[in-house]
Structure formats: C-alpha cells, structure tokens
Design a protein around this nucleic acid. Structure first.
Length: 614
DNA sequence: TGCGCTTTA
C-alpha cells in the first residue's frame, strides 16, 4: 500500500493496534466512498469477527489469514476472478502460504488474475515464482505462455532522504542514539525525530535518558519531548505519538520495528537507525524459539530511512558504518523459514496439500522443520501413519483458530466435562500475555493485584479465575479492570475469541454447558481443577518439565534448564511436574510461560507413545 | 531467581 495513496487514509488507520485489520476496513471505506456506495454493498470487507459483505459485493478487502480460511471451504477460491496480494514483500507466514496456494490454483484456473503488490526490490522474485510455472505448464501447449505476467511500477510520493553513516563503529548504540538526538536537536532545522531501537527495556531507558538531558537545555531553547512506542503499550499510550508536539517542542519517538512497516507517523523528518531488530527464530532440534537482537537487512534499513521522507526531504542517521551496511543481508529471512511449522503444516493439509515437502513455496522452509512439525502432529493424533490428517480429530484441529496443542485440548474437553472452562482458558492464553497491564516502576502493585486472582494449581486456572471475574464484574466496567491492573481491551477480545471458538465446537456437535462454569455450582468446583489439568495435559504433554530443588525446571529428557518466566505464578512457588504453554529463549536464559502443575503419571496416561517406557 | 520484535485466524 506504499504507493502514494496511503496518506489519504492513514489518518484513521494509524490509531489502532491491529494495522492489518484496520487497513482492510479503512481501505474499504475509502473505496466505497469513491464508488458512492455504502460499505457492505458493492464494496465490503472481511476480518476476524467482522464480515461486512453482501450478495452485491464485487470488491472485498480482507486479511490474508481470512482468505486462507475461505480456501478451506472453497479450495479454488472460485468466487474471485482477481486476487490482489498487498504488502507481499513483508513475507509474512500467511502471505507465503497464500502465494503458494494461488500458484497451485492457477494451474486449475488459469483465468484467475493475480496481482502482487510489493516493494520494487523483490518484484522480480514474485514474477519468477509465478512465471516459472507458466513456462513449465506451457511446455506442451505453448499458448499459455503468452501471459507470464508483468511488473508495473508505481512511483510513490516520496521526498529524498540523505543517508549518513558513522565513520567508525559504536560500542553502545543506545548512548550514541541519545547523542545523535541532541545533535539533531541543536544543529538541524525543525521536524520530528524517529529512533529505531530493539525492545521495551532499551526504549524506556532511552526515553528516560533523553528527558533527563532535555531538562538541562536552556529554558528558552526549543524543548524535546521523548515518547516510547512498542506494541506492549496500551492503545491510549500509543496515541501520544500521533499528537502534534506542543509549541516550540520537537517530538522524539523511540520505537521498535513497529514503526518500520505497521505504524506510520506523519511529520518525521529525521530517522536514527541503530541497525538492529529483535527477530524470532526457531530451533527444530530443541523446539525452542529464540528472540534476540540481530542486524537488520538492507531492505529493512531502506524502509526505516524512508520514514523520514514522507512530508518533506529528510535525513537518516545510521548508527553503523557504510562498510557494515554493505555487509548486511539484502532481505530479511522470511518468517516461514524461522517459525514453528506445526500450524502451517496442519493448515496446508486441511487445504488438501498432503505432501507439504513438495508444496511450491516461494522459499521452502528447512526440511527438518517440516519433519519436526509432522512428528508433533502425529503425537497429538492429528495425522496418521501416512501423515494424512485424521478424521475427525485432525480436520477439526485445523478448522479451529488456535494452535495444534490447544486445538487438541479443546477437542478433549468434552470427555473431561470441562468444555466451558477450557474455552475460557484457550481464549485467555491466545491473548499472549496481554492480560495484565504493564506498569513501569509499579511492579509491586501489579504483583499484588495479580495475587488476588492466583490459583494454586497454576497460570491456566488463574486465567480462568480472571476471565470469570471479568464477565461477572468487569465487562461493563473499565474502571474495575484498571483497579485490578487488567487490560480491558484484551479481556473484551478474549470474550470474542471465546464465543468464536464456542461456535466452532457447536458446529462439530459438541455441547457447551455454560451452567457448569458459573460460580454457584460449588459442588463441582472441587473436582473441576483436576479435570482441567488432565485435559490440558492431553495437548501439552510435549511441553512437560520438572522443578528442581533450586527452583529451575528440567525438561523430561533432562537436557535443558528452564526458568519460570517472572510473569508466571510458578516464578516463586514450589511445584513438581508441570506443563507449560510456551518456551522462549531471550538473552542467556530459556523461559517457560503459562505453567500448570500436573501429575507425572498423566503424561504416560495421555501420551503413552510419546513417553513410552521401554 | 527478574521480564516479549511483530502480526492474524
């Protein structure tokens, strides 16, 4: 969408937390306006929880994830004659799957037009990907080769940006970034500054340093207003970066990668780029994701610099030498090559692609990662000995909008009599840690608020407790949430996710008895926690660990030392065997998150093959 | 013992 049009609608798009979803709705609104119709008539949009289309709809804007869901019921996407894939150069997981799928569909539906919008750098790759197929299939009937595709260039409205490098490398880019900000402030013409750093901690301390030093500026000199920007902030906190700075004040936005592509801020004239970003990587041997700061790609550096040239000519200060720039990789490794592929493999199989290894990926993921994913799906019972999706379990798991392990838990729930509770837990876990609000400098208050909801057995039951309290006390009362340090918007989202998951289960013919979950059924409550913990074990047996006397955990094989994440109840409690939702390596420690106590023999009971005693 | 880059169904 970076082809000059964006400025028209970014005004409404930029304020929201979910840029992809927002882009679909605002673009639809804009195009409907141009076509003088109402949204939902000739022009509509479709995003999770919201389908604003009708029989009259001719142009539909949707997220790529939504289109993949549609392909589950309409494998040839036969209702569309033209499909345009936007922002393809970002190479998100779902974009890559979609491109492979579209290429496959075009073999059966050559009349389908595919338009791919991408930064120029990668346009050739996309053309080669699709054209390669035309040439190949045109081998016996040459005529189909007549339309192999074209590259059309649309020049964006961009002002020139001067790039400046360091003459010698810096030891400490945070310190250097602060210095650069003040150099710009005292020596350059007016205009706001955008600083790219890697994470929350770095950003908060930089903001702190800038405001301390800014206080020492001459009282009559222009002021500096440093503002943090990262996804962990609430949307209210994010809003500040879009507000115009007060009179005689220059804004300095200190941001993660979120400002590189997802969020656009007008008025930026100077960019300071540290040259690093935190990226996810996945180790198929250990199944552990890492999250570490790595050098960015040239494409990324170009994108960052471009943020300075949106309103007038700008400058980009790179906190590295031109020599180090030359050594950067051209592009960032696509997500599909650095992710846990279990959800991808499951999705492809549900789309009828059984031989995932032979699927035509734009860039294939490492074979090891595919094998690892298949092993997990097999142990969950989602695929059979022939790696085919099982019926109904595997098929249903693929249809559910949750990861395979949680999908298995949801589908096991009826036999443990805890469907309602598991629905709430699944919804809460999918919020990915945004249940509690972050209060810097107020850790103790957050801690004690959290303790009020704590349940002895662990984080999952604590989530259930929070969810039940929210729907009875806090749903209509944002203040109740603030008082308890709970994220109101996140919890509302949990309610939507839960009702969507419930609809899926009901479509599978699973009855959801909501009366069991209400607090007046005290009699059931004593047995219920154990059933829930057993049920969780049926999906998360591969994520089991045992606490050591020193409070750390060891994996079942004993090879790895794990630490309870400080946000977990188990951070300062005793336990024996546990299962956990997530495992992540940051810095030099491996953390586990969302932890619940279990009994060792449950592992053998629910995963006899996985934990076979020889 | 002390904390996660982003996005979506």
């Amino acid at each position: 969408m970076d082809c000059g049009w964006q400025s028209h609608w970014s005004d409404s798009a930029r304020f929201k937390l979910q840029p992809r979803r927002v882009a679909a709705t605002t673009v639809a609104t804009r195009v409907a306006e141009e076509m003088r119709c109402k949204v939902g008539e000739e022009v509509g949009y479709s995003i999770r929880f919201e389908d604003v289309t009708s029989a009259a709809t001719r142009i539909k804007f949707l997220t790529d994830g939504m289109l993949l869901r549609e392909a589950l019921v309409d494998p040839l996407l036969s209702r569309y004659s033209v499909i345009m894939v936007d922002e393809a150069h970002e190479r998100s997981l779902s974009t890559d799957i979609l491109l492979g799928l579209l290429k496959k569909i075009r073999r059966k539906r050559p009349e389908l037009r595919v338009v791919i919008s991408s930064a120029t750098l990668q346009a050739e790759d996309f053309l080669r990907f699709f054209a390669g197929d035309e040439v190949h299939s045109g081998g016996d009937g040459k005529e189909s080769g007549s339309d192999v595709g074209r590259i059309i260039s649309l020049e964006g409205r961009m002002y020139p940006v001067d790039i400046l490098y360091l003459e010698s490398p810096t030891e400490d880019y945070v310190e250097r970034a602060v210095k650069t900000v003040f150099d710009i402030h005292t020596q350059e013409a007016e205009g706001d500054i955008l600083v790219f750093l890697t994470g929350r901690e770095e950003i908060e301390s930089t903001v702190q340093m800038i405001s301390e030093r800014a206080a020492m500026l001459h009282p009559k000199a222009p002021a500096l207003l440093p503002l943090p920007l990262y996804s962990g902030l609430t949307s209210e906190q994010q809003l500040y970066v879009f507000e115009p700075a007060p009179e005689n004040t220059r804004k300095v936005i200190v941001s993660t990668n979120i400002a590189e592509a997802s969020v656009t801020i007008d008025g930026i004239v100077y960019v300071v780029d540290c040259g690093f970003a935190k990226l996810r990587a996945y180790n198929p041997h250990t199944g552990i994701e890492t999250l570490t700061a790595v050098p960015i790609s040239k494409a990324s550096a170009t994108q960052r610099a471009g943020r300075a040239g949106r309103t007038k000519p700008g400058k980009c200060f790179r906190l590295y030498t031109q020599q180090s720039y030359e050594m950067l990789p051209e592009t960032t490794v696509p997500e599909i090559q650095r992710s846990n592929l279990a959800p991808v493999v499951m999705q492809l199989k549900a789309l009828g692609i059984d031989n995932v290894a032979r699927f035509d990926f734009l860039t294939p993921p490492p074979a090891e990662q595919v094998i690892r994913a298949l092993e997990l799906l097999y142990s969950l019972g989602a695929v059979d000995d022939y790696a085919k999706l099982t019926k109904p379990l595997g098929l249903r798991m693929a249809e559910l909008a949750v990861e395979p392990m949680m999908g298995k838990v949801l589908l096991s729930a009826p036999s443990f009599g805890c469907v309602s509770e598991i629905l709430s837990i699944a919804a809460m876990v999918s919020l990915q840690g945004s249940v509690w609000v972050q209060h810097e400098g107020d850790r103790k208050a957050t801690e004690s608020a959290r303790r009020k909801f704590a349940v002895e057995e662990g984080d999952h039951l604590t989530y259930l407790n929070v969810y039940q309290a929210f729907v009875t006390k806090g749903k209509k009362d944002p203040k109740w949430c603030r008082d308890h340090y709970l994220n109101y918007r996140s919890l509302l989202r949990a309610v939507s996710i839960r009702s969507q998951l419930k609809r899926y289960l009901e479509r599978f013919g699973i009855q959801v008895d909501e009366s069991l979950s209400s607090s007046h059924r005290q009699a059931d409550l004593s047995k219920q926690p154990e059933q829930i913990r057993r049920c969780l074990t049926t999906g998360y047996f591969a994520h089991a660990a045992r606490m050591q006397p020193d409070g750390t955990f060891k994996t079942v094989s004993g090879g790895l030392t794990l630490h309870a994440h400080p946000s977990s109840l188990m951070f300062n409690r005793k336990a024996d065997w546990v299962i956990f939702h997530e495992i992540l390596e940051t810095g030099d420690k491996i953390f586990i998150r969302d932890i619940t106590k279990i009994e060792k023999n449950w592992l053998l009971e629910y995963a006899p093959d996985y934990y076979r005693v020889s």
